[in-house]
Every structure is written in C-alpha cells, then in structure tokens.
C-alpha cells in the first residue's frame, strides 16, 4: 500500500506541474478566446531568462522579477500585438497554426545557444520526509501547494474582482462589453500579461525537475493541453483537476501496466473525455455564434 501512495504522491507532484501549464490554456481561452500552442515554450523561455540573469550574478528573486517584466513585454504584449491581434479576425485556426510555428521558432532559437540541459536551482530546500513509508521531498509538497494557490488565486481574480469580471465579459461578448464602458483592448492585454506571469511562475517550479533545455516545453505543452481539455477548457479549477489526473494516471500506468504505455495515458483519457463529456470534467457547455 505504501508503494501505491508513493506513486500517487509523485504523480500529484508531476500533475501539479502539468496543471500550471494547463492553467495558461484555460486562461487565454476564457478571457480572450485564443488557444496558444506555444504554451510549453512560454514556460521554457522564462527559465532560460532567469538563468541568464542569474549568470550575471543577480540573486534569484531579482532575476525572477526581471524575468516577469521581460515576459510581460515579450510573451504578453509582443505576442498579442505581433501574432494574436493581426490574426484574430481571420479565425481560430490561423492563431493555432501561428502559435505552433512560434513554438518551433522559440525551441530552435534557444537551441542555437546550445542543446544541452542546464541545472536550475530549486526554490525549496533539498529535504526528504518519510511519512508512513512514503518518501516525499519538500519540493514535491511545495510545488503542489504553490500550484494550487496559483490556480485558485487566478480563479478568484477572474470571478471576484471587477477587473476579472470585466475580462470575462470581454471574452463572452466583446461588443456588449465595450457598450458597458469596458476598455476592451486593455482587458485582453491583462489576460496576456497574467498568462506571462503564470508562465514565469511555472518555469520557477518546473525547471528544477525538467532541467532547462530547449525542448523542455514540448512534452509539457502537449500534456498540459490534454490536461486542460480533460479538466474543462473553460474552467481554471478544471486545469488543476486535469493536470493531477494526468500526472497520477501516468504514474500508476507506468507501474501497474507498462512503462511503455505511460505517455499514452494522457491521450487515452483525452479521447475518452472528448467522446463522452466534450466540455471536460468541470467545464460548462458553451455556445458560440458561428
């Protein structure tokens, strides 16, 4: 039984990492109706930015702060102005293709500086706890707790603050929102900025485990997308649930079925959900004008 809990807890820690990346998908979808397939790379770039700042001798909190500023400018503002704004009126498919292209460009751009993995300092102390035969590290617990706080915080911001509600209004009906006096472009920019900040936070938690490498975002982005769909694309808590389900499912399958099918778990769950509950486990049915 201790073995089962060992797998479960390791799965939860991995799952919370997927959840953080999945949160970016749901956020952009809820607030601006776009899907960003470069989400994994949006986590990879801040990781390298933090390493770059740190290599100039800056302490980690400062490099994290500078990375957030940089990320809001590049992954928030420039991404919105350069890719989403010009393509938005042509439809969703164009944005999807453009973000896939962007992810390839970002990956290979970073690859030019070197294809090797770099270690990344952990936010948490290197301490191991043994609870009834189950060993957990402080970083497992820390990642899980912080990821949950970020998800719940984002959800609360969207649901309970005026700005958050305005952002949702813009996503639901842009015309009515502007009639109501909401500054539509600003609200959409806020969404992209929050997404960029979350990506930086995800990078901080994810990279010590994934290691900073040009292709670290590739599997992360895919798993996060599956997790977001499984949990429900229009619900932030769905991202958390989806991420945890994928993380735990993978780990249990690797131990009790076969390690060879580990990566198929997310895909299989994704297909089952799409077939039987297309809006996701926690998602609402949404109707949009065609």
């Amino acid at each position: 039984m201790a073995d089962f809990f060992q797998l479960l807890f390791s799965g939860l820690a991995t799952g919370s990492i997927y959840a953080l990346a999945a949160l970016g998908f749901t956020l952009l979808w809820q607030a601006s109706g776009t899907i960003n397939f470069a989400q994994g790379e949006f986590v990879m770039l801040p990781a390298f930015a933090m390493l770059a700042f740190a290599s100039f001798g800056m302490p980690m909190p400062l490099s994290f702060f500078l990375t957030i500023v940089l990320a809001i400018a590049v992954l928030g503002w420039a991404f919105k102005r350069g890719i989403v704004d010009p393509l938005f009126r042509y439809g969703m498919m164009q944005i999807v293709v453009a973000t896939i292209g962007l992810s390839i460009a970002m990956r290979n751009g970073v690859r030019l500086t070197g294809a090797e993995a770099h270690p990344f300092p952990s936010l948490f102390a290197d301490r191991i706890y043994n609870i009834a035969g189950v060993t957990v590290t402080q970083s497992d617990i820390g990642t899980l707790v912080l990821a949950m706080l970020l998800v719940i915080g984002t959800q609360a911001f969207l649901a309970r603050t005026i700005t958050g509600r305005a952002m949702q209004a813009v996503a639901q009906n842009t015309e009515s929102a502007s009639v109501l006096g909401i500054n539509v472009p600003r609200m959409i920019f806020y969404t992209f900025a929050i997404n960029a900040i979350l990506a930086c936070a995800a990078a901080l938690l994810v990279t010590p485990v994934y290691l900073a490498k040009f292709d670290m975002g590739e599997s992360l982005g895919t798993k996060a997308f599956f997790a977001a769909v499984i949990g429900g694309f229009n619900n932030s808590r769905g991202a958390l649930l989806g991420g945890l389900i994928v993380g735990v499912g993978e780990n249990l399958a690797a131990a009790y079925v076969s390690a060879a099918y580990k990566d198929a778990v997310a895909l299989a769950l994704f297909m089952v959900v799409i077939l039987f509950k297309p809006q996701g486990l926690l998602g609402r049915k949404e109707e949009r004008k065609v």
Binding site: Q6, L7, T14, A254, S258, A259, K262
Partner: peptide
C-alpha cells in the same frame, strides 16, 4: 528489466519497481 523513455521526467515508478 525496466524500460524508460528518452526525455522521461518522473522516475518514481521505475525506481519503485527496482526496489520491489
């Protein structure tokens, strides 16, 4: 005889099998 994937991040199941 434990197979793992290239680029695998989580080794908890593999290590657990080795322990077992």
């Amino acid at each position: 005889d434990i197979s793992t994937d290239s680029g695998q991040v989580d080794f908890s199941a593999a290590v657990l099998k080795a322990k077992q």
